[in-house]
Amino acid sequence: MTTAYDFTLPGLEAGTINLNDYRGRPLLIVNTASKCGFTPQYEGLQAIWCQFKKAGLVVIGVPSNDFGKQEPGTASEIADFCHRNYGVSFPMAARGSVKGANAIPLFQWLNKECGFLGCPRWNFYKYLINRSGQPAAWFSSLTPPTSPRVRDAIERTLLNG
């Protein structure tokens, strides 16, 4: 059976993000963009990362230019924007496609596992992966990362796997 831990992502600033390195830890995977109305959610993602990383949660941003061409920058421009404006310290992947036939393998798998309604329809879709590497919940762009729904799902996943 395939799990989220079976995937790797090129890192935004260099190297590779090997999700197997986080095996047994819950993941919150988010497709991001720097020029979107939802971009301020970076602040909430950083807050969630700071609050729950000691408990084991890993937040991973995946910049994408799929929706409204709202992530046009180079890797260094994206990294600089995230660090300067939102203090992002969680792992960020290189920009990649998250929808359709051109989606990166991780998002092809997420789209299959989460079904039609779970496929990202805009930036800042959030996918919570349980300790077994399977999707536990997903949240649309409209749900802020610091909302009670997201926090409760994270806490349940941290407690129950």
Score class of each variant (00 low, 15 high):
1 M>V: 02
119 C>D: 07
55 A>S: 15
90 F>R: 02
142 L>Q: 10
5 Y>S: 13
150 V>R: 01
17 I>D: 08
14 A>Y: 02
85 N>L: 09
74 T>L: 01
2 T>S: 11
127 Y>S: 12
125 Y>T: 13
127 Y>R: 03
157 T>W: 00
71 E>S: 03
2 T>K: 06
24 G>L: 10
20 N>H: 04
48 I>D: 14
114 C>A: 13
111 N>L: 07
161 G>A: 09
57 L>S: 14
55 A>Y: 02
32 T>N: 07
142 L>T: 11
41 Q>L: 11
71 E>I: 04
72 P>C: 06
11 G>Q: 05
93 A>I: 09
106 L>T: 05
12 L>H: 10
91 P>K: 03
137 A>L: 07
55 A>D: 14
19 L>H: 03
72 P>D: 07
48 I>G: 15
68 G>T: 04
77 E>T: 07
76 S>V: 10
137 A>W: 00
72 P>H: 01
44 G>I: 06
161 G>E: 05
94 A>H: 06
152 D>W: 02
107 F>V: 06
53 K>C: 13
151 R>I: 08
131 R>I: 07
3 T>H: 08
15 G>R: 03
54 K>M: 07
107 F>C: 06
73 G>K: 01
70 Q>R: 00
40 P>Q: 01
156 R>M: 09
39 T>G: 14
80 D>C: 15
42 Y>W: 10
133 G>N: 11
4 A>T: 09
148 P>G: 11
16 T>Q: 08
14 A>S: 15
80 D>F: 11
4 A>V: 09
61 G>S: 09
